[in-house]
Design a protein around this nucleic acid. Sequence first.
RNA 1: GGUCCAGUGGUGUAGCGGUUAACAUGUCGGUCUGUCACACCGAAGAUCGCGGGUUCAAUCCCCGUCUGGACCGCCA
Length: 582
Amino acid sequence: MLRSHTCGELKFEDVNKEVTLTGWVQKVRDKGGLIWIDIRDRYGITQLLLEDGRSDSEVVKTARQLGREYVIKASGKVIERVSENPNLATGRIEIDLTGLDILNSSITPPFTIEDDTDGGEELRMKYRYLDLRRQPLRKNLELRNRLSIETRKYLDDQKFFEIETPYLIKSTPEGARDFVVPSRMNEGQFYALPQSPQTFKQLLMVAGYDRYYQLVKCFRDEDLRADRQPEFTQIDCEMAFVEQDDILSTFEGMVKYLFKTVKGIDIPELPRMDYADAMKFYGSDKPDIRFGMKFVELNDVAQNKGFKVFDDAELVVGFVADGCAEYSRKQLDKLTEFVKKPQIGAKGLVYVKCNEDGSFKSSVDKFFDQDALKSWSDKISAKSGDLLFVLSGEKDKVRKQLNELRLEMGNRMELRDPNVFAPLWVVDFPLLEWDEDSKRYHAMHHPFTSPKPEDISMLDTKPGEVRANAYDLVINGVEIGGGSIRIHDRDLQKLMFKHLGFTDEEAQDQFGFLLNAFEYGAPPHGGIALGFDRLTALFGGQDSIRDFIAFPKNNSGRDIMIDSPSIIADDQLDELNLKVTV
RNA sequence: GGUCCAGUGGUGUAGCGGUUAACAUGUCGGUCUGUCACACCGAAGAUCGCGGGUUCAAUCCCCGUCUGGACCGCCA
């Protein structure tokens, strides 16, 4: 080793030790007679001291050649500082330098390597290896590392078995777009990268590995978001001989364990909310339950009073924002503008101020008298000083719109504290979802999800109302994971494929291996997959997963550091029998 | 596929139809024996993303384009 210690570990007790440190030059403070050098590695920062006249003149000379990010080896004696720095872990000591070697020089980095860097996002991505030297990024990756270790510990304790599944698999048309990989040895044929190891983990259940897990990369060729990358990591799990409750309690245990060991937070029992209630009371299948503002439906008190907009609506629904009756016209206009944005698409926003004197002031005073407004306020359990928001329209749309407004108000009222964690299970998802484009139902979760036995009879008559044994883990309004009890019966699986519009031939062609496997004693099984990047970002208190991934892609799916994707050479294309047409 | 925002010294920003293009930070030189966001003095550093248009005059206004970011669609 070139060093005896790291830059983060020397303490007052180490005074008088002869040490050698290696690292990068964070900063040189040359006061003329005294020179301080901050040396940094991933463990911390230690201050080195030189005194002109007393220290070795060659060492002083070397020190004066140093620039930011030079790599150095520094030797000397640990001494107590004359003036301590309480902000630094090593702030009580410094190294009285007797030796200094430049191991490598550095050109001036394009941005400052500090917690609060001056670098913009694009530049930091281009020089990601420099950005990763910064403490905030390092802390994020440390958090990720810690979470992966604790995840493995928990699952190992629960007798889960980590098994790797292949990355070069078979493309299927269901679900997200596949990334494909041309096969050189099989002309004109392609592998696909897995969107998830779904079928493999089910085959492992058939094989008898009754508790499987894997921290695994998954790939989806869809547009990116702050919380979506084309390659991402899942904690992928599957269990055999279980029912839904067994899976929920096992992974509720994991959630609690991770919060306890990594964040020191005790999480109480996770509430379970069925999908229908989540939509009804929060307008979302991933409700943020850190705060209230539950929806209240107002059809019976708000309709048939002559306000055509409400009378014509399928649903009139609102919520109360505590203590916001003082909102100004300007603020209310802003919120109206917000819900009318094309991405949200509401036609307008009705508000009712519950004044301190017991009177009401609304945007629809023309149509509703004080008694009518009071009936709304009573129904919605508002107090004086509160503000009601009401939207109306087609049920599904208006719920979605009101959800956006609720989250916006949650932000404005600072009710979405990143240090508060409110996990819950959303259960009883619909099995099927109508798709306007293809004019058919498709699986809401995936085609291997089992319907609730009592709902199977509705598959033919009311397919949209069939519920699945499917569940999501939601924390702070973020979908962290989802899973289901799978179908393990060949006939039921075939029936499902039929309802999803597959012919027998298509089902056999694409999933024959699974249907065949189900002939050989498939146990009842189910599982879950958690988004590891999202979980890490959530623990780190951020919405974007990018800074919790060492080398992420940008908005357009590009890695601007290595400049990928890129074109490939003609002979490479020839070998793969590919022709590029753009 | 769509909507919105941004692009100005190395970096982050300000700015304005006519400017010596401002500020901070970084860089370089100097002074300084207790700094740690060191301080102070001085210097260098910008075809204002690219192309076209309007105008006597464009970094500024308009159109296009590229790049980046946020979002909708999409994400079984």
